[in-house]
Amino acid sequence: MDELFRNVDWYEIGLACLDTLLMLGGSLLFTVLLGLPLGVLLFLTGPRQLFENRPLYAVLSLVVNALRSLPFIILLIVMIPLTVLLTGTSLGVAGAIPPLVAGATPFFARLVETALREVDRGIIEAVQAMGATTRQIVLRALLPEALPGIIAAVTVTAITLVSYTAMAGVVGAGGLGDLAIRFGYQRFQTDVMVVTVVLLLVLVQVLQTIGDRLVLRFSRK
């Protein structure tokens, strides 16, 4: 066993796991907090929707697409000044979270927009006919009806964030992906590579399973 994983420092692996989980948790929290309202706004201002507003939708769309088209590794570096402003450092887990959020929020917002579009227009019409305000339509009908879709969106986003965290090593954030690149790839320590990759795989599996369970739990169809 020891021979097989000769280069593996289990304490180091443990720290990397913790870093990955911290980055994932922190960035997912802010991604949802920012991306959900952005997704709702995208939906509402979209074509033939409640607050149809072509210029605003065009601008939001452009910003979202721009952030999404930027490779994450570039975003990570470009954002350094803003990151320092926000967290006081551009290094470590704290330094990685702002770029992770900036990278994942537009992605998540688009998924939320799509989930909201899946809600039957007839339901919006029925709630309008009850005399609901737009705020009530969103909070009491749209979001509850789209909840399974939104949970699925959170799951996909979380998994995307896991792969983003692998690149966060560039700013010294650590984490499993970073370990895989620095030791597994650059130093040809295949055993480290295998362990980290397996751990990442397990993490993704766990996230997907939790997500699927929750979707099922909230689906009433």
């Binding site: 039957d120 007839g122 339901i123 006919a129 009850m130 005399g131 009491r140 009433r220 169809k221």
Partner: peptide
């Protein structure tokens, strides 16, 4: 609109709410 009830071809009930909560909805919104 609260003085005008409406029913639909495809019912347009909220799938995420129980029968009782669907019926209560117009009252809760008001």
């Amino acid at each position: 609109r609260r003085q005008v009830g409406m029913i639909f071809q495809h019912f347009n009930l909220l799938a995420s709410k129980t029968v009782a909560d669907n019926v209560a909805m117009p009252l809760r919104l008001a």
